[in-house]
Design a protein around this nucleic acid. Structure first.
Lengths: 126, 126
DNA sequence: GTCGTTGCAAAGCCTTTGCAGGGAA
DNA sequence: TTCCCTGCAAAGGCTTTGCAACGAC
């Protein structure tokens, strides 16, 4: 578990952003949104806080294929993600629909899985 | 489509590697394996040829979460991948196991999907 | 006053690119 | 001979790290 011993304006600003979004956010989005609250907010600070918040179990890092890492609140229950090939944004999708038993090779042990859907989001379809 | 106008020892060495493996390979693995045939093989050459072979439709690039990109022969039919958290190697798994009608949000259009299983491969379990 | 945090700049990775020489056709 | 391709080194993009100043408690 991380230190997280002091609450700063910067960290508070970053955490607040995740209360106002329903989709995972990338580093640059977080930086831009955070600067609306703390104008001096630095990239390195964002990286450091994201790392701490992940270690602390408050955030979850998602490595969606192709785009960089995105972050969402941890503890949301089992779900997967949709990635728009037009705007590159990631969206949360509910449910799972995967039969895990299928395909695990003999002798292998499957512990978890991730499903990514790719396509066009509703905003980009219009 | 790419140029690919001349066959070089370097490119031939890289292509040959994919005839001898049953799992997707990363850049470093390809470089090391290729140097067994062409000792002067350079990283930049590997990157350039991988890009050309993907554009040419001979290879497929897979962005597995967490590890860097890996490459496999194209045209293998619909399948997904297993990633070992011990050795980080990626394995091909047959079949799909995904219920197609899962969770695409209203207004979204799903065009394709990827499934990643994570766990321990048989070699690492021993 | 402590010492965790921040901003800035430098340093690290990984990947791409510029360039001159080399080799396939 | 042509000009695509390679090796090398430099440059890019993203992320991490060192360090002095700052500020939460």
């Amino acid at each position: 578990m991380a230190q997280m011993k002091r609450m700063t304006n910067q960290r508070h600003a970053i955490q607040e952003i995740f209360g106002k979004t329903d989709r995972p956010l990338g580093v640059e989005e977080i930086l831009q949104a955070g600067r609306k609250t703390v104008r001096s907010l630095n990239q390195a600070t964002v990286y450091r806080n994201l790392k701490l918040l992940v270690e602390d179990g408050w955030l979850k890092k998602i490595d969606a294929p192709g785009v960089g890492p995105v972050y969402e609140r941890a503890g949301k229950g089992h779900h997967h993600h949709f990635q728009c090939r037009s705007c590159d944004r990631i969206f949360e999708i509910s449910g799972c629909g995967l039969n895990e038993r299928i395909g695990t090779p003999p002798g292998f042990l499957t512990e978890r899985h991730e499903v990514y859907l790719f396509g066009i989001c509703s905003a980009c379809r219009e």
